[in-house]
């Protein structure tokens, strides 16, 4: 099975992942190789098998809905690329 250049571009767009034009065909080749590997799974009959998400089949725990931590905004924003007046700055989205 192989992945086309345009499918690679679609995935890169979905993942908002910039890849250089000249690298796309090499990603297509690598991913096609991976897909070939993955098709081996079709050799195994998995009808009626329950998908496994956690090795101990543990489900998400519930906890009492109380405040346990206060967010320290200043501390977190100190490592942000760009902030102003307590807000994270990004390029303008609405004209």
């Amino acid at each position: 099975m192989s992945l086309t250049v345009s499918e690679v571009k679609d995935c890169a767009h979905l993942a908002r992942l910039g890849i250089e034009e000249q690298d796309i065909s090499s990603y297509a080749k690598d991913l096609s190789g991976m897909l070939d590997l993955l098709t081996q799974m079709n050799d195994l009959d998995t009808d009626g098998v329950e998908p496994m998400a956690h090795p101990m089949d543990q489900v998400q725990r519930l906890r009492v809905d109380v405040v346990t931590e206060q967010v320290d905004r200043e501390k977190f924003q100190a490592i942000a690329p760009q902030v102003e007046a307590g807000l994270y700055l990004v390029p303008k989205v609405i004209e």
């Binding site: 992945l3 499918e7 690679v8 679609d10 995935c11 890169a12 979905l14 993942a15 992942l17 890849i19 990603y27 991913l31 991976m34 993955l38 799974m41 079709n42 195994l44 998995t46 098998v49 329950e50 998908p51 496994m52 998400a53």
Partner: peptide, 25 residues
């Protein structure tokens, strides 16, 4: 890219769910 492809519409069952079933076996 591989993960995005495997989780994208139309492929989710064929790859992700299938892999989770293989994982159980």
């Amino acid at each position: 890219l591989m993960g995005t492809y495997a989780l994208s519409a139309g492929y989710y069952d064929a790859y992700y769910i299938k892999a989770q079933k293989v994982r159980r076996l």
